[in-house]
Design a protein around this nucleic acid. Structure first.
Lengths: 336, 336
DNA sequence: CTGTTAGCGCGTTCAC
DNA sequence: GTGAACGCGCTAACAG
C-alpha cells in the first residue's frame, strides 16, 4: 500500500508544473496537444485520482449533493427507492456523488451538511405543510430543492407531483364509468396528522371533482396495520345496491385481496382506480387503471433544476408541477 | 450571505490560537475549563462549523462511509430500504455520513470513492459468487465490508445472513407439521443467473434438510412478472392428494393471494413458511411463520465491525454469520 | 496547559 | 502555452 499519488507526482513524471496538471484535468485553459498527452500518460501510469477534500477546499465545491430521505414514509418502499435511485443516477451523470441523510435527523441536518461544506446543494423529500426545513432552507448559502410543497413556498424551489390533477382524473374516470358514488381509501390518518400535505390537497381536489360531476364522495382514511383495509371496505360496501367506485391511494394490493375475499373482482364487479407507481399497477392480478406518481420523472426534473441552480443560485423560487396522467388498464369496466 | 466563519475567526474572538480551537473540538488534548468556555462561546456566537474538506485534507479521514446499493435487486424494496436506513443510522451514531453509490456503476466505483478520498470505508451489498468487487476490495487502501459472501472470501470481511440455517429451519418446520412433501417457491431464475449466491446456498441446504427428514423437496423458481406465481402454484398443486408444504422465499403476499384464489388458506388448508422480514410476515392476513432475514441486524453488525476496522485496518478477513431464527405465527397448522 | 509552525493536495492568480 | 507561488481551513508535531 504505497503512498497515494498526488498531482505533484503527476507533474514530476510528466515533466510539467503542478498547475498544468490541474488545467489538463479541468480544461479551463488551452493546453498543447503534446503536454496534454504527457500529463494524461502520467495520470494513467500512476492511476492518479484527485483528492476530493483538497479539491473541495481549493475549488469551493464538493461535487456532492445531499438528499434528505424519509425512510419512514407513507410512500411505498418501492416508490422511495425509485426516488433515491434516480437522484443518485442524475447526480452521477453530472459527476456528482450522493450523500444520504435521514429525515429523522431533523431540520438541523440541512445546516449540518451545508454548513460543514459536505455538499453543494440539498434535495429535501416528503415536504410537509408546516415544515421547519422551509425556513432553514431559505437561510442556507446553497441551493435547496424541495420535492413537495410546504405551506409557505415563497423563495423556495419546489418540484411536486400534481396531486390535485391526479385526484380529478381518478374521480372522473370512475364517474365516466357510471359510478354515482365514489369511495376513496386514503392514506393513513397518521400521514395526515404528520402534515404530509398532499393528503388534504388530494382530498380537496377529489371532492371538487366529485361535486362537479354530481357523484357522492366518501373519504375513508385507512389506518396502518392488518385488518384495517377489511374494516374500511366493510364500511364502504355496507350500503345496499351496487358497490361504489373505489379510489385507492396506497397499498392497492391489499385492497384487491380484501375485495377478493368478498368475491369481488376489480374490473368485473367493482370499478377501482389507484394512485401508484406503474410497476405496482401492472403487478396486480388485474392490472390497475391508475395515475402514476412518477417518482422517476419527479426526481429527474428536480435534479435537472438543481444543477441549473448550482450555476445560478440566485434564480427565483417557484413551484413546478409534474403533470398527472392516467393509464387505463383493466380494473374499470369499459362502458359498453 | 456573509462569509462562512473559520476556525481562525473562532480563535480570534476567543483570544486563543487556531490550534487550541482544534483541540477543543477534538478533545485530543486537555484544555483548561476557562479557555474551553471561551472557545465554545465563540463557536456558538459564530455558529461555526468546521469545513469538512479541510478537515479531511489535514486529518486524512473524511468521516464518510460509502455504501454500494443494489437498487435492482431480488431483495424486496422494503428490505433494501431497511438495510440502507440502518447503515445510515449506524454511521451517524458514530459521527459519520453516508455516501451512496449505485451498484450499476460497477466495481470501478469502489476505486473511485476510496481513491478519490471521498470516504474512509466501503460497504458492499448483495455480493455475488463471482464478484469482481472482491478483487478490487483486496487492493483497496481502506476497509471494505461485504454483506454477503463471494465465492473466494479470502482476506475479506463479510457479514452474511445464515441462509443455510434458514433453509433448514423452514424445511424442518414443515416436516415437523407432518408434511411429507415440500415445495419451495424460490427466487427468480434471473437472481440465480446473476450469481446471487444465497440462492444456491439456500437450495442446497433445503435439499439436505429434506433428505435428512425423508421428505420430498421440489424447487420452483418463480420468474418475475404477473401470472408467474399462479403458474408455479398450479404446477406444485397439480398432484392429487394433500397439497405440499410451501416455502416462500420472496413475495409471500402474492403467493397467499394466489392460494386464496384457489380457496386455500395458509394455516388452514396448507402449511406455508416464508423467508421475509418480520414486517412482511406480520402484515399478511394470516401472519406467517417465518425466518426473518433481519436486514437491520445484519446492517448493524456490519457497521459495528466496519468501525472496528477503521481503528484496526489490519484485522484479518473473516465471514461472520447472522443466525437465522424462526418465528412461529399462524400459517402452519399446529400439530394437535 | 497553550502557542507556533509546517504541511495536507489542489485551484488559481500573476508573471513570463 | 507554461510555471511559481499563494491560499483554501484544518490537524499535528514540536516548543515552551
Amino acid at each position: 500500500m504505497a503512498r497515494v499519488p498526488t498531482s505533484k507526482d503527476v507533474a514530476r513524471i510528466a515533466g510539467v508544473s503542478q498547475s498544468t496538471v490541474s488545467y489538463v484535468m479541468s480544461g479551463k485553459r488551452p493546453i498543447s496537444e503534446k503536454t496534454r498527452r504527457l500529463v494524461e500518460d502520467a495520470i494513467a501510469q500512476l492511476t492518479y485520482q484527485p483528492n476530493a477534500g483538497a479539491r473541495a477546499l481549493a475549488g469551493r465545491r464538493t461535487n456532492v449533493i445531499a438528499a434528505v430521505v424519509p425512510f419512514r414514509s407513507p410512500l411505498s418502499a418501492h416508490g422511495l427507492m425509485a426516488f433515491v435511485e434516480e437522484i443518485a443516477l442524475a447526480a452521477r451523470a453530472r459527476d456528482h456523488d450522493l450523500l444520504i441523510v435521514t429525515a429523522d435527523e431533523g431540520p438541523g441536518a440541512l445546516q449540518r451538511v451545508v454548513g460543514g461544506a459536505l455538499c453543494d446543494a440539498v434535495v429535501v423529500m416528503e415536504v410537509r405543510t408546516e415544515d421547519e426545513r422551509a425556513a432553514v432552507a431559505r437561510s442556507l448559502s446553497r441551493p435547496a430543492l424541495f420535492i413537495g410543497v410546504p405551506g409557505d413556498s415563497a423563495g423556495l424551489h419546489c418540484v411536486d407531483f400534481d396531486f390535485e390533477g391526479a385526484a380529478a382524473l381518478l374521480v372522473a374516470e370512475l364517474a365516466g364509468a357510471g359510478n354515482r358514488e365514489v369511495a376513496v381509501l386514503g392514506w393513513t390518518p397518521e400521514a395526515e396528522e404528520r402534515g404530509i400535505n398532499y393528503v388534504p390537497r388530494f382530498r380537496a381536489a377529489a371532492e371538487r371533482a366529485a361535486a362537479e360531476r354530481g357523484v357522492a364522495l366518501r373519504w375513508c382514511a385507512v389506518p396502518a396495520g392488518q385488518g384495517a383495509v377489511e374494516h374500511c371496505l366493510a364500511d364502504v360496501l355496507s350500503t345496499p345496491g351496487a358497490p361504489p367506485g373505489l379510489v385507492v391511494t396506497t397499498g392497492a394490493q391489499e385492497v384487491l385481496n380484501a375485495l377478493l375475499r368478498r368475491d369481488l373482482v376489480a374490473g368485473r364487479d367493482v370499478d377501482l382506480v389507484a394512485l401508484s407507481t406503474d410497476a405496482e399497477a401492472e403487478a396486480q392480478a388485474v392490472p390497475l387503471t391508475a395515475v402514476s406518481t412518477q417518482p422517476r420523472d419527479v426526481s429527474r426534473q428536480a435534479m435537472e433544476w438543481l444543477f441549473e441552480l448550482l450555476d445560478d443560485p440566485a434564480a427565483p423560487g417557484e413551484v413546478r408541477r409534474v403533470p398527472a396522467e392516467l393509464t387505463r388498464r383493466r380494473s374499470v369496466r369499459t362502458a359498453g
